[in-house]
């Protein structure tokens, strides 16, 4: 296979995989009383909820509500997560002080916090944002911390010999060297945040895609459930693409041509 053919083949592969998914889906959705909606029924339901409101809101509004919760929590998770990760990785005394508490809290699944957070914060917007924050915060802390721990000591030594002070070693050497690891943490945090928002909305919400999925379950509307699931997937893909572009801006050296 020459290089042009190989290129074509690589373009074809994603199309083939999606076609197989759709074909398999159509196959299992056939037949009387199937609990799985056909792709066509799902598409029709999607178009329907885009114009006909459920709980006083159309799908884009539900989507925006979920997205808003994720983004607000995400901003706090990024700021506090990077801050804590840097503290744990950079300062030995802060690590000794804070790490045991973090290690105890870290393995608790974010969803396990839902009942407590609802008791503490009620059923408004705050508890959902708090749950998403808990889910996004941990991956950012862990990646920032391990990024700093794994930095090549040669880079630090080179800075020390050039006369860099502690602040310069942190801001001009350690943080730029750790940026790819932090961004990888942010990417993980984003999918974790999405998972949490849907879970939080499934328990206590009047708007949001998680709420729509529960509504679909309560009314046996499988097309609604699948349509919402696909929308979540597409929005995640879009966010991930935006993050990749951001990575290109923040770490141009990672994306420049290789030797």
């Amino acid at each position: 296979m020459n290089s042009a053919d190989t290129k074509k083949w690589y373009y074809m592969l994603p199309i083939i995989s999606i076609a197989i998914l759709l074909g398999g889906w159509m196959l299992v959705a056939q037949g009387e009383g199937s609990m799985i909606p056909t792709p066509y029924a799902t598409l029709m339901r999607f178009l329907d909820i885009c114009v006909h409101p459920i709980s006083k809101a159309v799908l884009p509004v539900h989507m925006w509500m979920s997205l808003k919760r994720v983004l607000i929590a995400f901003v706090f998770a990024i700021v506090l997560g990077i801050g804590l990760g840097v503290g744990l990785g950079w300062s030995t005394s802060f690590h000794a002080f804070a790490d045991p508490v973090f290690e105890i809290l870290r393995p608790i699944p974010p969803i396990a916090w839902i009942p407590l957070v609802i008791l503490w914060c009620g059923i408004g917007e705050l508890p959902k944002v708090v749950i998403v924050f808990i889910g996004s915060f941990v991956p950012i802390v862990l990646n920032t911390y391990s990024g700093i721990k794994e930095i090549d000591s040669l880079l630090i030594n080179a800075g020390l010999v050039l006369g860099a002070n502690r602040r310069q070693l942190l801001t001009e050497i350690t943080l730029p060297a750790t940026t790819p690891a932090i961004l990888a943490g942010i990417r993980t945090a984003l999918s974790s945040g999405w998972m949490c928002v849907v879970a939080a909305e499934m328990i206590a919400a009047k708007q949001g895609v998680g709420f729509l999925i529960v509504r679909g379950q309560e009314s046996g509307d499988t097309a609604l459930i699948v349509a919402c699931m696909l929308v979540i997937g597409v929005v995640s893909l879009l966010l991930s693409t935006i993050l990749s572009k951001l990575e290109g801006v923040l770490c141009p050296w990672q994306f420049s041509k290789t030797k």
Binding site: L155, A158, V161, C251
Partner: peptide
């Protein structure tokens, strides 16, 4: 005013 060249290349990859 000192400088050090290490055995392994120590250029900063982000610069």
């Amino acid at each position: 005013n000192m400088a050090f060249v290490f055995q392994e290349p120590s250029a900063y990859q982000w610069l």
